[in-house]
Amino acid sequence: MYKNQLQELAQRSCFNLPSYASIREGPDHAPRFKATVNFNGETFESPSFCSTLRQAEHSAAEVALNTLSNRGPSRSLAAKVLDETGIYKNLLQETAHRAGLKLPVYTTVRSGPGHTPIFTCTVELAGMSFTGDPAKTKKQAQKNAAMAAWSALKHCE
């Protein structure tokens, strides 16, 4: 999942595709892998060794996406594109799944005149509610709520 999202980010933002490198250690019957990904001139490394090369590459891509998403949508082109791709919704869902929590629940309210509606969305996760900035579409309102939740949760860490 993370490798695909990183590749999509590269394609949408006209960056070179991510390139992966890995190291292998351990005996042939039980190898361990650690990977790095080079993305837009930056290198991101998987935090630990993994039992498969694929897991190590996904781990490195996850580090890259988390690092880029923490920069905030206005701080870099990559972070802005991350917002446009809906990465924050994916990150919230993946985090909830890993933590054994119920998946995020989105509630969207439509207001304003019929020809120019405004959508406001709230996402609930782990007993907390986060409201995003209003938007012209339901989809963007959900992305805004997910981005608000992700930003708030990252500041809590």
Results as ranks from 00 to 15, higher is better:
residue 1 M to Y: 09
residue 2 Y to G: 01
residue 5 Q to P: 00
residue 8 E to A: 13
residue 9 L to I: 14
residue 10 A to R: 04
residue 12 R to Y: 08
residue 16 N to G: 10
residue 17 L to P: 13
residue 17 L to W: 08
residue 18 P to F: 11
residue 19 S to P: 00
residue 21 A to M: 14
residue 24 R to T: 14
residue 25 E to P: 00
residue 26 G to R: 10
residue 32 R to P: 00
residue 33 F to T: 00
residue 37 V to P: 06
residue 38 N to M: 12
residue 41 G to H: 03
residue 44 F to T: 15
residue 49 F to Y: 12
residue 55 Q to I: 07
residue 55 Q to W: 01
residue 57 E to S: 02
residue 59 S to G: 01
residue 63 V to D: 05
residue 64 A to R: 04
residue 67 T to L: 06
residue 69 S to W: 03
residue 70 N to S: 11
residue 72 G to V: 02
residue 73 P to I: 14
residue 74 S to T: 14
residue 75 R to Q: 13
residue 76 S to T: 14
residue 79 A to F: 02
residue 79 A to I: 04
residue 83 D to G: 06
residue 84 E to A: 05
residue 86 G to S: 03
residue 87 I to F: 08
residue 90 N to I: 15
residue 91 L to W: 04
residue 93 Q to K: 05
residue 93 Q to S: 09
residue 94 E to L: 07
residue 95 T to E: 02
residue 97 H to I: 01
residue 101 L to T: 01
residue 101 L to V: 03
residue 105 V to R: 14
residue 107 T to R: 02
residue 108 T to W: 02
residue 113 P to G: 08
residue 116 T to N: 15
residue 119 F to E: 04
residue 120 T to K: 01
residue 120 T to L: 01
residue 121 C to F: 06
residue 124 E to Y: 10
residue 125 L to D: 04
residue 126 A to I: 09
residue 126 A to V: 13
residue 128 M to H: 12
residue 131 T to G: 01
residue 139 K to L: 06
residue 140 Q to S: 07
residue 141 A to D: 02
residue 142 Q to K: 09
residue 144 N to S: 09
residue 144 N to W: 12
residue 146 A to R: 05
residue 147 M to W: 15
residue 147 M to K: 09
residue 148 A to P: 00
residue 151 S to P: 00
residue 153 L to C: 05
residue 156 C to K: 14
